[in-house]
Deep mutational scan, measured.
Amino acid sequence: ALNRGDKVRIKRTESYWYGDVGTVASVEKSGILYPVIVRFDRVNYNGFSGSASGVNTNNFAENELELVQAAA
């Protein structure tokens, strides 16, 4: 299972961040479909780089994520 702070690569092909590595911000335990919230260094097309207006978190299912580096 994934944990907060883990570095993960995104495998959801239609995602803006496909192939990117993000950090797990939190994992919901309530049984929702996309329980893993991942935070990225770059914002998506809703904002400009360096601006706070873009979105830099997204929810994924565990099977859409590949663990790159476990949290220390």
Rank of each mutant, 00 (worst) to 15 (best):
Asn46Ile: 07
Phe60Trp: 02
Asn58Leu: 07
Ser49Asn: 13
Val68Ala: 02
Arg39Cys: 14
Asp6Ala: 03
Tyr18Ile: 02
Pro35Gly: 08
Asn56Ile: 07
Asp41Ser: 07
Phe40Thr: 00
Leu67Phe: 06
Gly19Trp: 05
Asn63Gly: 09
Asn44Thr: 04
Tyr18His: 07
Gly50Val: 07
Glu28Met: 12
Asn3Ile: 14
Ile10Met: 01
Glu28His: 10
Val21Met: 04
Ala71Arg: 05
Gln69Trp: 12
Asn3Leu: 10
Lys11Leu: 15
Lys29Leu: 09
Val24Ile: 08
Ala61Lys: 08
Ala25Tyr: 10
Arg9Phe: 05
Glu14Phe: 05
Val36Pro: 00
Tyr34Glu: 05
Asn46Asp: 15
Asn3Ala: 12
Tyr45Arg: 10
Val43Ile: 12
Gly22Ser: 03
Ser30Asp: 14
Ser26Leu: 08
Gly31Ser: 10
Val68Trp: 05
Asn59Glu: 06
Trp17Val: 01
Ile32Asn: 14
Asp20Trp: 07
Val38Asn: 00
Asn59Trp: 11
Ser30Ala: 11
Thr23Pro: 00
Leu67Tyr: 04
Phe60Cys: 01
Ala72Met: 11
Pro35Cys: 12
Phe60Ser: 00
Asn56Gly: 04
Gly5Cys: 09
Gly5Glu: 02
Gly47Asp: 15
Ala25Val: 15
Thr57Val: 11
Glu28Val: 11
Val68His: 02
Thr13Glu: 13
Asn46Leu: 07
Arg42Phe: 06
Asn59Arg: 11
Gly19Leu: 12
Gly22Tyr: 05
Gly54His: 08
Leu2Ala: 03
Phe60Pro: 01
Glu28Arg: 07
Val27Cys: 03
Asn44Trp: 15
Asn63Lys: 08
Ser30Glu: 13
Asn58Ile: 06
Leu33Ser: 10
Thr23Val: 13
Val36Arg: 00
Glu14Tyr: 08
Val43Phe: 15
Tyr45Ser: 15
Asn46Gln: 12
Ala1Val: 13
Arg39Met: 14
Ser15Val: 02
Gly50Arg: 00
Asp41Trp: 05
Val27Pro: 00
Ala61Asn: 12
Ala25Glu: 15
Ser51Gly: 12
Ser30Asn: 10
Asp20Pro: 01
Gly31Phe: 10
Thr13Arg: 12
Tyr45Phe: 09
Tyr16Cys: 06
Ala61Tyr: 11
Ser26Arg: 13
Lys11Met: 14
Gln69Thr: 11
Lys29Tyr: 11
Ala61Arg: 09
Ser15Glu: 00
Arg12Cys: 05
Phe40Pro: 00
Ser53Tyr: 10
Gly54Lys: 06
Asn63Cys: 11
Ala71Gln: 08
Leu67Pro: 04
Leu33Val: 08
Gly54Val: 06
Tyr16Trp: 10
Ile37Thr: 14
Leu65Val: 08
Val38Pro: 00
Tyr34Thr: 05
Glu66His: 04
Ala70Lys: 14
Val21Arg: 00
Asn63Trp: 14
Glu66Met: 05
Arg9Cys: 11
Val68Arg: 04
Asp20Ala: 06
Glu64Trp: 02
Ile10Ala: 02
Val36Tyr: 13
Asn58Tyr: 11
Thr57Asp: 06
Gln69Leu: 12
Asn59Val: 06
Lys29Gln: 13
Arg12Tyr: 04
Leu33Cys: 10
Arg12Gly: 02
Gln69Val: 09
Tyr16Leu: 05
Glu62Arg: 14
Lys7Leu: 12
Asn44Ser: 06
Lys11His: 10
Asp20Ile: 07
Ile32Tyr: 09
Ala71Met: 10
Ala70Gly: 07
Pro35Phe: 14
Ser26Ile: 08
Ala61Met: 10
Ala61Trp: 05
Glu62Tyr: 15
Val38Ala: 00
Lys11Gly: 04
Asn46Val: 06
Val27Ala: 02
Gly47Ala: 07
Thr13Pro: 14
Asp6Ile: 04
Tyr18Gln: 02
Gly19Cys: 09
Thr23Arg: 04
Arg4Ala: 12
Trp17Ala: 01
Lys11Ile: 09
Thr57Trp: 14
Asp20Glu: 11
Ile37Leu: 13
Lys7Phe: 07
Ala70Thr: 12
Tyr45Lys: 13
Glu14Pro: 04
Trp17Cys: 03
Val8Ser: 02
Thr23His: 04
Asn56Glu: 07
Lys29Pro: 11
Asn46Gly: 10
Thr13Met: 14
Pro35Ser: 11
Asn46Cys: 15
Ile10Trp: 02
Tyr18Asp: 02
Thr13Asp: 05
Thr13Tyr: 10
Val38Leu: 01
Asp41Leu: 06
Arg12Ser: 08
Ala70Trp: 07
Ala70Val: 12
Ala61Gln: 07
Leu67Ala: 02
Val36Ala: 00
Gly47Glu: 15
Gly47Met: 07
Arg42Pro: 04
Tyr16Ala: 06
Ser53His: 15
Phe40Leu: 03
Asp41Phe: 07
Val36Cys: 02
Gly19Val: 03
Ala1Asn: 11
Tyr18Glu: 04
Glu64Cys: 03
Ser26Val: 08
Val8Phe: 03
Asn59Cys: 13
Asn44Phe: 15
Gly47Asn: 14
Ile37Ala: 10
Lys29Ser: 12
Pro35Gln: 11
Tyr16Lys: 05
Ala25Pro: 00
Ser49Ile: 14
Lys11Thr: 10
Ser53Asp: 14
Arg42Asp: 07
Gly50Asp: 14
Ala52Gln: 14
Glu28Ala: 11
Phe40Trp: 01
Arg4Val: 14
Ala25Thr: 13
Asn44Met: 13
Glu62Thr: 10
Gly50Ile: 06
Gly31Lys: 08
Ser53Phe: 10
Ser51Asp: 13
Asn58Met: 15
Lys7Asn: 03
Thr57Asn: 06
Leu33Glu: 10
Tyr16Gly: 03
Gly5Pro: 00
Trp17Asp: 15
Asn58Ala: 15
Ser51Tyr: 10
Ser30Trp: 09
Ser26His: 15
Val43Pro: 15
Asn44Cys: 15
Ala71Val: 11
Ala70Met: 09
Glu28Thr: 08
Tyr45Pro: 15
Leu67Val: 06
Arg4Gln: 12
Ser51Asn: 11
Arg39Trp: 08
Leu33Arg: 14
Asn63Val: 09
Ser51Arg: 01
Asp6Asn: 02
Asn63Pro: 04
Val24Ser: 01
Gly19Phe: 08
Val55Gly: 06
Ala52Tyr: 10
Ile32Arg: 08
Leu65Ile: 05
Thr23Cys: 10
Tyr18Thr: 03
Ala71Asp: 09
Gly50Pro: 10
Ser30Thr: 13
